[in-house]
């Protein structure tokens, strides 16, 4: 066991994902406690260039054609061998489509403790996780064994995990990556919508609280009055009430409007991940404990159906 903090770098289609930089920033906080180094672990094929901006003391790079694209099986084999051999104090993963597929499996394969959804790390090495849709925090200590940790976006800023000084890179042998059971066939690029909500300055965002498809109309009317467009939380899109291009959050778009007005959105972490860069968030929700009020500048605790019609009226009046 050494005191180093490993960070599994996530990259897709030739780009390092922001979460990787956030993780490096978290890794630094943890390394300050353990006294070890921050080590970035990069798996891929012909992607050494991706190491350039990683704020790590060192990069371990495993290059193999079978690691060119993320698949659970190949990544798991490479990481299980590396972690087993090096025994760092902790390994950080993103709480993402990549990291979440890896961390739990490795916890079982290597019999190592796992802390999920970590948002912040205290000076004494306590890991604080966010659960229950942001309503509850749980603290777990760093174990004496190599601790696996998934990091959620939002706690650590990606800018703090970036550097202009390229870190030194060591290439490692890939273990044999035969007998894989998961194969990538192809990528499908996101469908372009009629509007690009990531560029819209005024967004009226509806959540499950809008209750049914017909009520989307209400949001459309308010958006029209304000000269904005309607977007939504994931359930509204999964229910087929709005197209995928209108989804905001972890699996949807990151938005940065002047006004983000939510109606019937609880403010789950996966949603607020997409709205951090909004200039002004106003939340309408009937539940005073809804986490969205922790992110909004202004909040209204009201049944949205009691407010929208009047609000549309007043907006029309104000426009004269």
């Amino acid at each position: 066991m050494n005191q180093d903090i490993y960070t599994v770098v996530e990259h897709l289609q030739g780009q390092v994902s922001d979460i990787s930089y956030s993780m490096l920033s978290a890794a630094r906080a943890l390394a300050n406690f353990t006294g070890g180094n921050v080590i970035a672990v990069l798996l891929g094929h012909n992607v050494e260039g991706l190491t350039r901006n990683l704020a790590a003391d060192h990069v371990l790079y495993i290059d193999d054609p079978k690691l060119a694209e993320f698949t659970t099986d190949a990544y798991l084999k490479a990481l299980a061998q590396l972690i087993g051999e090096k025994q760092p104090r902790a390994v950080l993963f993103g709480n993402t489509s990549i990291g979440a597929d890896l961390a739990s499996v490795l916890s079982v394969r290597l019999a190592l403790p796992l802390t999920y959804s970590c948002q912040s790390i205290s000076e004494n090495g306590q890991l604080t996780s966010q659960i229950c849709g942001g309503k509850i925090m749980a603290e777990t200590p760093l174990s004496d064994l190599t601790t696996l940790i998934t990091i959620i976006p939002g706690g650590y800023k990606p800018e703090e995990g970036q550097t202009t000084v390229s870190p030194p890179v060591t290439r490692l042998e890939s273990p044999s990556l035969d007998d894989l059971r998961v194969w990538l066939k192809q990528y499908f690029e996101p469908e372009a919508g009629d509007v690009d909500i990531s560029k819209e300055p005024i967004l009226i965002s509806v959540g499950r609280g809008i209750s049914n498809e017909d009520n989307i109309e209400l949001a459309e009317e308010l958006a029209e009055a304000l000269g904005g467009v309607v977007c939504a939380s994931r359930p509204v899109v999964d229910l087929g009430w709005l197209p995928t291009s209108r989804m905001v959050g972890k699996s949807g778009q990151k938005v940065k409007p002047k006004l983000y007005l939510t109606m019937g959105i609880s403010g789950a972490p996966e949603h607020v991940e997409g709205i951090a860069d909004s200039e002004m968030i106003i939340a309408i929700n009937s539940d005073p404990t809804a986490p969205i009020f922790d992110f909004a500048k202004y909040g209204v605790e009201i049944d949205l159906f009691d407010l929208v019609d009047v609000l549309i009226e007043k907006v029309e009046e104000a426009k004269g």
Binding site: D73, S97, S107, T115, Y116, I131, C132, T140, R181, S251
Partner: peptide
């Protein structure tokens, strides 16, 4: 939403020694 020590699916897959994919 209350997962704190990993998610059920990937843990189960590894206990069964079979592949997993999520999301």
């Amino acid at each position: 939403h209350n997962d704190l020590d990993g998610s059920l699916g990937p843990l189960l897959a590894e206990y069964l020694h079979i592949p997993y994919a999520g999301y």
